[in-house]
Design a protein around this nucleic acid. Sequence first.
DNA 1: TCTGGGGTCCTAGGACCC
DNA 2: TCTGGGGTCCTAGGACCC
Length: 442
Amino acid sequence: MIGLLDANNFYVSCERVFNPDIVNKPVVVLSNKDGCVVSRSNEAKSLGIGMGTPFFQIKVLAEMEDIRVYSSNYTLYGDMSGRICAEVKSLIPNVEVYSIDEQFLDFGGFGGHDLSALGNEVKTRVKKHIGIPTCLGIVKTKTLAKIANHITKKSLTHNGIYVLEHPKLVEAFLRLTPVGDLWGVGRRYQKKLAEHKIYTALDLYNTPEHFVRKQMTVVGQRLWHELHGRPCIPLEQISKPKKNICTSRTFGQLETDLSAIKEAVATHAASCAEKLRKESSIANYLQVFIQTNRYRKDDPQYSNRAANRSFTWTLPIASNDSRDLIRYATQALEQIFRSDFKYNKCGVIVSGLVPENERQLNLFESTDKQPEPIFEQVQAVCRPDNRVMKAMDDLNGRFGAKTIKLGATMSTQKTQSWQLTPSLLSPHYTTKFTDIPIARCS
DNA sequence: TCTGGGGTCCTAGGACCC
DNA sequence: TCTGGGGTCCTAGGACCC
C-alpha cells in the first residue's frame, strides 16, 4: 500500500504557524512579484478566490473581506517542507518527496499493522511537531492514493485520512472523481475524453485499454493500469539528478534598456550556476530567453523563442562556473535582443547536465596553469579548479546569500529597475540570516 | 520498371505536474 | 497599472550512420 501525504493549503499553513492571529481568517499567499494567488485558506476559497487569480482582480475584495495577504516566502516553505519530511521518516522510513507539500509513503512491510492508526499517527505528529495540517490517502497505487487524498480533503468526516482496501470502495471513489481531476489528465485530455463520453475516473477505468493507449499514449496506459490497482509508477526514494535548470523572473517594470536586461540575465546565469554547483552537476548547453508582456495586446510583441531565435549555446567545456555562464549568457542575449520592444521577462536555462566528475574534456584544453596566449579563450572556460566558486559558495553559506556577488550582477542606479522587492513578505522564521534579530539567535 | 534493413541522435511540439 | 516560476516525459520527424 502507498500513501500520499499532502499538506493542506501549504503556504498559508506555514504562515499561520508563526502567526496564529490569522488562523480562521481568510488568507492568501501570492506568487513572485505579488502577481497571482498561489495558496488559499479554506476561508479564502469560500470567498470564491480561484487558484492563480491575478491579485489586482481581487484587491478590492481583499480589503472588503479583510483577507490577509502574503508575498511568497520560499525560504520558509522549503525549510518547513524539510521538517515535515524528517518527521514522517521517523515513522515511515521509505518516502518519496514528490513536491514541496506532497510525499508518497511506502506502507509495504507494515502488513500486520492497522494502517489507519499508523497513518493517523503520522498526521498527528506532523501537526503537533511542525504545526502543519495534512491529509492522507492510502491505496494500492500512487494514482489511487492521489484520488483518495483528494476526496479526503473535501470530506469533513474521517479526520483527513482514508485507507481504501475494498474494491467496491475504490469504485465508489472513482465514480466521485471527474476524469480531469486525475493525476496525469490535464485540460486537453479532459476535453478529448469528454468527446468520447468519458467524464469520470470510473468511465476511464471501464474504457478498453487499447483505446486509452491510442488516445493518451503509454502515459495514459500506465494511468489506466494504476486505476485498476496495478502499480506502474514506482516509488522513487532517491531523487534523480535534474536534467534542466531554469532561472527566470518578470521585471519590476517594463524594460527597454539592454544594460539593465544584461544585468538581469547575468544574475539568472549566476543563479543557474549556483544551482548546478549545489547539484554537483555541470551544464553543456545554455539558452537565454526574453519576452514582452503578452497581456498587453496593444504593445508590439516579441519573444525570441516564438520567433524561432531560440539559440542553444554549446559551451566549449561543460561548466558550473558562474563566470563562464555569465559570459555566454550575456553574449547570447546580444544575439536575441531587439530594440524598440518593452520587455517584461527574461531567463536562463541550462541543459545537458552531467555529474561534475564526468566532464568531457575538450581536445584543445590545456591543463597548464600558464597557458599559451592562443589558448586564452579556451582556458577561460575550463578552469580546472573551481576554488573561487567554492570560496564564494562557502562565504554565502556562512554569512547569508549574496554576501559575495560577481560584478556583472551588481546593480547601478541606472539598471536596478528590473528587480523588485516583495512588499508583504514574512520573516525567514526558521532559517539563519533573517531580517529579524530573534531568529538570528537561532 | 525495379530501389533494403537496421540503427542512433537531436529537436520541436504536445501533454502533463507542482 | 497590475497577470509566477519552476520542472518532466513522450512522440514524430528529420538527419545521419552502416
